[in-house]
Nucleic acid binder design. Structure first.
Lengths: 301, 301
DNA sequence: CCTCTATCCCAAATTCCGCTTATGATTCCG
DNA sequence: CGGAATCATAAGCGGAATTTGGGATAGAGG
């Protein structure tokens, strides 16, 4: 197998017209060129140049190799340019898997920033809920996963994954306007022990039950649904109250309901997850940075 | 510029599926692969592989580089195969410049042998007389020149040329059948001082005059022509006698003339000339060998 | 559940390759 | 016939790449 440096030097010699000139072009000394060409001729098995006096001429093998050298160097620089495009963030694809309310808030904002500064980066968007979306990450089906955890349930993430905290998403108690508790500025969980509840997704429900248990009651859950829009509609109809993350409320809010903060506050942690190795991939790191920046502006939501 | 060895190793890793497997394929130890891939990733600027457990996966950059690696290695091996064709004598072009009587005798025989054993070697045939054909060689217009010299005139060949003696071509005295001298088996030059002569090409004529002078007479040259056929016709018509190399007579002999050997013999030296560097070019060396072999069978002509 | 094997990384040492420096020979040009 | 430029060669050295040795981890199988 030819050494690409030899090919490059050979090509320089051919175009420059002499060993010395090629040495000047490539930043070598002249003997280096001599040695490289000697080695190349040795590996080819036949001379590539002949000299008549001081003039240099290509042999038949030299002519043939010269033509090949052109294409070899072209494909090499093509590869190099594509690699450069990927590292210089002028190209690349990042697959992001997020839970619905992140897909509706953080993601679009991050993508807007991304499109402005790095139009070459393409993002594929997948939707998935935390326990499963993490598995997808490990399986290599996506590069970044946005997921949330509740402080109560201490979940373990696989070792090869790294967690990047993005924001804390505060929970709000939703109730129909005119509800007696709506007169307070903030409510305590213990005050809600007698209410009827609309419960959300599995993880939210689990955490909710956990927190209620800590305060000392078991909530009366009347309805359960994954759909936040349905939850709000049920609340609006007076069928119960509900806990809902601020992230959801920031883009979807039924006009017949109102929300009150909890005291003490309850929150879920929104984080990005990446395979440890992928942190070093420029495009992935870039999208992560945008997500961090977007999340930072939402602190306290 | 990527190192072609790195590309080759990278490709082996991709196809073999693991560093260790690639090491076995390439005959390296495994750490060598690790270091090469580390160096490659450093020069690319982004990881090429990620590992999930023991499984290896290509990153986006790795996928892209893998595609390029394929074509790079293909063009490299294509170049290598063409070089191999040239060195293994399965391809090649040799330009031979010869004087007419060699073109009619030695060359066709050599080409016949060549075509049998090495059908891939193409030969371009040029015709040229000695003083000029040597210049063509130096100028790079041909690779091998067949030329003849007479022992008398000590011509200098350029330093970068190498002379390969092929055969000695004995001169014969041509006379019409029935000529008085035709009764002898051999004739001495001095016996021919009173004859009328038909002279051939410049070099032949020069040598002829030289030899006559040494014996002590100036020949009476009635006609001069480069064309050996014309010489023979003139001799046949009884217009004079002539000296002619055996090489010419071996393929062209007027049936109304006869030839007698000279005593002492007069001969011209037929040699091949090559640029010194070109001796190392396989195809050129091959044609030279064939010419030597053909000439060896003609010793004494 | 444990062991065994295969894989990979890391660090150190050695070998080897390639570049440079220095020098001499040759050619071309004024 | 110098002088400039080119190439070849040899010696020396620095760095790179490989090997060696050791350890950690993951997956397979008993």
């Amino acid at each position: 197998m030819f050494d690409s440096r030899h090919i490059k030097t050979f090509h320089a010699v051919v175009t420059a017209g002499s060993y010395s000139a090629a040495a000047r072009v490539l930043g070598y000394t002249q003997p280096a060129i001599t040695q490289q060409m000697k080695a190349l001729e040795r590996s080819v098995g036949t001379p590539l140049f002949t000299r008549v006096g001081r003039r240099m001429r290509l042999t038949e093998a030299g002519e043939a190799l010269s033509r090949h050298a052109e294409t070899i160097l072209d494909t090499l620089t093509a590869a190099q340019q594509q690699m450069s495009s990927l590292t210089r963030l002028r190209a690349g694809r990042v697959r992001v898997c997020a839970f619905p309310s992140a897909s509706a808030t953080l993601i679009p904002e991050a993508l807007a920033r991304l499109a402005a500064d790095h139009p070459g980066i393409r993002v594929e968007l997948l939707e998935g809920e935390p326990p499963d979306s993490i598995r997808r990450l490990v399986r290599g089906e996506c590069d970044i996963t946005l997921a949330f955890t509740y402080p109560g349930l201490h979940e373990q993430v696989p070792e090869e994954l790294v967690e990047i905290p993005l924001m804390e998403d505060q929970l709000t108690v939703l109730m129909p306007i005119g509800h007696p508790l709506a007169r307070r500025r903030a409510v305590q969980l213990a005050d809600l022990s007698e209410e009827r509840w609309i419960a959300g997704c599995l993880r939210c429900r689990t955490n909710f039950l956990h927190e209620c248990a800590e305060v000392g009651f078991a909530p009366d859950i009347a309805f359960t649904t994954d759909d936040n829009l349905v939850v709000q509609s049920l609340v609006a109809e007076g069928l119960g109250i509900a806990m809902m993350p601020g992230l959801v409320l920031s883009f979807m809010r039924h006009d017949r309901i109102t929300g009150r903060a909890l005291d003490p506050a309850s929150r879920r942690q929104v984080s990005a997850y990446v395979l440890r190795d992928h942190l070093r991939i420029p495009a992935t790191a870039l999208v992560l940075d945008e997500l961090k920046a977007v999340a930072a502006r939402r602190v306290g939501c």
